[in-house]
Amino acid sequence: MDSWLKPFAQGDTIRFVRGKYLIDHDIVVPRGMSVILEKGSRFTIASGRSLLINGPLTVQGTGVNPVFIRPQDEGLPYGVIAVHGNGRTVCDIRGVRMSGGSTAWLADRYHSGMLTFMDCQVSLENCTIGGSKGEDAVNVKRGSIQMLDCSFEEGQDDLVDIDRSTGAGPWLHLHRSNRW
């Protein structure tokens, strides 16, 4: 495990409590470990750097205490936050305010969204995502997604890109008050 992660590891979970965190190098969370970003956690990410998660991701921001993800330097975009799942991996994202990312190659894969999910079951609620400097603000590949009360704005190119997401039922559902 990356030594940067070790202070936040509790068994099979990486937990970030309320506070400020700087990601200054590419970080890969080991396969199968869950990541939780608690309300009030604030991340800044250095230029071109990324976070790759290989398991479930939970973001617990609220209206009063969102989770912020921003570039360390407003003029220098970071790479991406990406989740690689196994098709059943759950990503429950609430109350995130995210801006200033771009694209990245990680683990021999191209990630077109500053927030990228591959093979995940994704729920986004009460999120504001904008100011992406790359191809997409959000990219979902081969997964499912539900969105509720989200706002996407001011991307350099596409805002939400949904690719080859298959399964039974209405597995993609963007709903109520999503604003582009």
């Binding site: 996407f152 805002l159 890109d161 949904i162 080859r164 559902h173 963007l174 709903h175 008050s177």
Partner: peptide, 23 residues
């Protein structure tokens, strides 16, 4: 704002009660 609001490829999608402005 350049680009698309929502770009779907090879996907099945219900888009309900959404707002697309100024794209």
């Amino acid at each position: 704002m350049n680009g698309d609001g929502l770009d779907a490829s090879g996907s099945h999608l219900l888009v309900q009660d959404c707002l697309f402005v100024g794209l």
